[in-house]
Design a protein around this nucleic acid. Structure first.
Length: 539
RNA sequence: GUCCCCAUCGUCUAGUGGCCUAGGACGCCGGCCUCUCACGCCGGCAACACGGGUUCGACUCCCGUUGGGGACGCCA
């Protein structure tokens, strides 16, 4: 994109001769500088296209195209349909697409497949964009919208029609539904029987769809980068609809035209698209275009072994942010589903980008496993810097009503919890006692076990010792604490545990000295006093 | 039903004919460390779906069976 735009200068002459563009001939030759109003800019295959979306396609489909002279060698695309949020399966596909281009210095493209105008929503587009962004999967080019390219698809269909490679079909939807129904009853594969395929009239006075004349003999095969050789007998395939009766293009047509125009070299997608592939290869061949390479990745399954769906808790990837996961931890988890590198489990983004090779991806489906994700997330939390964790922790604290905590202080808090939390949610929950006005009432079990049996004198001694500390510093606090333990001939635990309950209300926390320090002198002393007042004043 | 794909511990995986009495990781269990909780460390349980071939030799190659998944739309 950058290359092509750099190449574009206002006074450049339009180049209409680029053979890689499978477009209808340009009717009007218009120089770009004649256009003062905004044109639609789309980059295809390193070539900048300027089009006017509001123009009748036949009139001027392509206003100007400028040869970029710079072709990326490797180009992949992630092509979601905007009918819902980005879930973890889609995220994995996008990740693989991006990783494939990273090692090879290629380009990762986002294309929104919104040819089904009824089901596509702007809300879903935004959700997908947000999800990708959070995961660091922003595209190098795009997002492109198929709805902007309708004229291109229709032009391709028109050409196939003119060349006899497609035909008009006037079968009603009802009659075809009935056909499929009866085929199902006969237990044969439901498919269009081609009843309009050989009629010589091409009626345009009644509603029709444009169907592709699928080769009826031979077979279609490709060398899948993940699955190996896949072969389909052509007689398994029926004549697919390219253009609907309302004049809108369908998925398979749009995909082929875009994949060609965008110079996609590797179509990397879920294996639920395997059965579309022979149809798309036919279209490439019919249009006289080179066929890209394919890689179909195994699907992600839910715990019952079927395709991941909402009932398996397949939620938006952004839910993982809410749940306290780090984007790279999620990426790390996802990349290990179907791919491995020796015995390494933990990968940084950088490592994934240099090591990932789509040809090493396994062929069998994987089941989503939360506990492994948690473990990986815990590792990423531990290896992150406090600075990196800071915004996410603040975000989680805000959800708990903690407004504008002191970031400098939080940077001291975070290291104490990095080994103790598998998610940021857990971290926020565990450090909440630091913010509370009071930790009363104490957790029942903790109080029973450590608090009521405590030695009041020792707590008083600690309180007084700490109170006299000239400076509230970690080392001084520890020395003071140890002094009290030694003076009263106690075990560490005999003092640390009741103090811990007093400070946190629970039986677990970071080290007791660190906890005292983080709490600050004022709050620490107040909580110790509070504890003393609650204990039976004997001994 | 038809076509396509898949098949190693519960889960993610290593394994490309002898290095495998199958390795690692998560989880689980036991222990160590220890002021608690974690982290870390040590140990344990646990798998080649089944049946035929091919071969001196199969987890690895071939065929079949079974099981699982996917696709069969004027959805993508």
């Amino acid at each position: 994109m950058k290359c092509a735009e750099k190449e574009f200068k206002k006074n450049d002459k339009a180049d209409y001769s680029n053979p890689t563009l499978g477009l209808t001939p340009v009717r009007k030759r218009i120089r770009a500088e004649n256009y003062s109003r905004p044109t639609h800019r789309t980059v295809y295959n390193g070539v900048l296209l300027l089009t006017l979306p509001d123009q009748v396609p036949e009139e001027n489909l392509l206003i100007a195209c400028f040869s970029g002279g710079c072709r990326m060698s490797v180009r992949t695309r992630f092509a979601p349909s905007p009918t819902g949020f980005l879930h973890i399966g889609g995220a994995r596909t996008a990740l693989f697409c991006q990783l494939h281009t990273r090692r090879l210095g290629g380009t990762f493209i986002l294309r929104i497949e919104d040819t089904d105008r009824e089901r596509s929503t702007q809300q879903a587009v935004d959700a997908i964009l947000d999800g990708l962004h959070w995961l660091g999967l922003d595209p190098d080019e795009g997002p492109f919208f198929q709805s902007d390219n309708t004229p291109l698809y229709l032009a391709a269909a028109q050409r196939l029609l003119e060349e006899g490679k497609a035909y008009r079909c006037t079968c009603s939807k009802e009659s075809i539904d009935a056909l499929r129904e009866s085929q199902r009853e006969q237990q044969i594969k439901p498919r269009y029987d081609g009843r309009c395929r050989d009629r010589h009239d091409q009626p345009t006075d009644q509603p029709y769809v444009i169907r592709f004349r699928t080769p009826s003999e031979g077979s279609t095969a490709w060398e899948d980068q993940i699955q190996g050789t896949i072969r389909f007998p052509n007689d398994e395939l029926d004549d697919l609809v390219l253009v609907r009766s309302d004049g809108s293009p369908t998925y398979n047509l749009a995909v082929v035209v875009d994949d060609h125009n965008m110079g996609i070299t590797l179509v990397l997608r879920g294996e639920d698209h395997i059965s579309n592939t022979p149809r798309q290869i036919h279209l490439f061949q019919a249009l006289g275009w080179p066929v890209p390479e394919y890689a179909h990745m195994p699907l992600l399954h839910g715990s019952d072994g079927s395709k991941l769906s909402k009932r398996h808790g397949a939620v938006s990837v952004l839910q993982y942010r809410e749940d306290g996961f780090l984007p790279d931890a999620l990426n790390n988890y996802l990349v290990r589903l179907g791919w491995s590198h020796g015995e390494q489990e933990l990968f940084t983004r950088q490592e994934m980008q240099t090591l990932f090779d789509v040809r090493q991806v396994g062929r069998s489906a994987a089941i989503f496993n939360l506990s492994k994700l948690l473990w990986i997330n815990g590792n990423h939390i531990r290896t992150a810097t406090p600075q990196q964790l800071l915004p996410e922790l603040i975000y989680q604290l805000a959800k708990r009503g903690i407004q504008q905590p002191d970031p400098q202080w939080l940077l001291q808090v975070i290291p104490e919890f990095q080994t103790r939390a598998k998610t940021l949610v857990e971290m926020a929950d565990k450090c909440l006692f630091l913010f509370a006005e009071s930790v009363l009432p104490y957790e029942e079990k903790a109080a029973q076990k450590h608090f009521y049996t405590a030695n009041v004198q020792s707590i008083i001694a600690l309180h007084d010792g700490l109170q006299q500390l000239p400076e509230w510093q970690a080392a001084a606090i520890e020395a003071c604490f140890r002094q009290v333990v030694a003076d009263l001939q106690l075990e560490m635990g005999q003092l640390a545990q009741p103090v811990r309950v007093a400070l946190t209300g629970t039986a677990s926390s970071p080290g007791i000295h660190e906890t005292l320090f983080l709490l600050g002198r004022e709050r620490a002393l107040r909580r110790l006093q509070e504890a003393v007042s609650l204990l039976p004043n004997n001994k």
